[in-house]
Simulated assay, not measured.
Amino acid sequence: MSIYNKINAGFSLSTGSPVTSGIEDVLYIFNQDDVTLTYDTENPLIITGLTAVASAKVYKFEGTNNSFNSMSKLAKTQVGPRYTEEIDFNVAGLSVDIKTQLMAMGYGRVCAIAVNNYKDSDSAIELFGAVNGLIVTEAERNAADETLDGGYKIKLTNPDKLKEPYPPRAVSIAPESGTATYASTITAIEALVA
Rank of each mutant, 00 (worst) to 15 (best):
162 L>G: 00
156 L>Y: 05
10 G>S: 09
26 V>I: 14
159 P>I: 01
32 Q>N: 07
7 I>N: 06
94 L>M: 06
74 L>D: 09
130 A>E: 00
111 C>P: 00
181 T>I: 01
41 T>F: 03
10 G>T: 13
166 Y>S: 05
90 N>S: 09
68 F>L: 03
156 L>S: 07
25 D>I: 04
78 Q>N: 14
166 Y>P: 00
143 A>F: 04
56 A>C: 04
129 G>D: 05
110 V>P: 14
21 S>T: 13
70 S>G: 06
175 P>C: 08
90 N>D: 04
166 Y>Q: 11
76 K>I: 14
12 S>H: 05
11 F>I: 01
138 E>F: 01
5 N>V: 02
31 N>T: 10
137 T>W: 07
34 D>Q: 13
47 I>C: 13
120 D>M: 04
175 P>Q: 10
140 E>P: 00
63 G>E: 03
174 A>V: 05
81 P>Q: 09
1 M>R: 11
106 G>E: 12
68 F>Y: 05
11 F>N: 11
145 D>S: 10
67 S>H: 08
88 D>L: 10
41 T>I: 07
137 T>Q: 12
186 I>K: 11
20 T>F: 02
80 G>W: 02
170 A>P: 06
62 E>C: 03
36 T>D: 07
39 Y>C: 01
132 N>I: 01
36 T>Q: 14
35 V>Q: 03
12 S>I: 06
33 D>M: 04
48 T>V: 13
86 E>P: 00
160 D>S: 10
56 A>K: 12
70 S>R: 14
60 K>D: 02
1 M>C: 02
44 P>S: 06
176 E>G: 14
185 T>I: 09
48 T>F: 02
35 V>Y: 01
99 K>I: 10
185 T>H: 08
34 D>L: 00
28 Y>E: 02
64 T>Y: 03
155 K>A: 00
26 V>D: 04
73 K>D: 12
57 K>N: 12
81 P>I: 03
88 D>C: 03
71 M>L: 10
50 L>T: 07
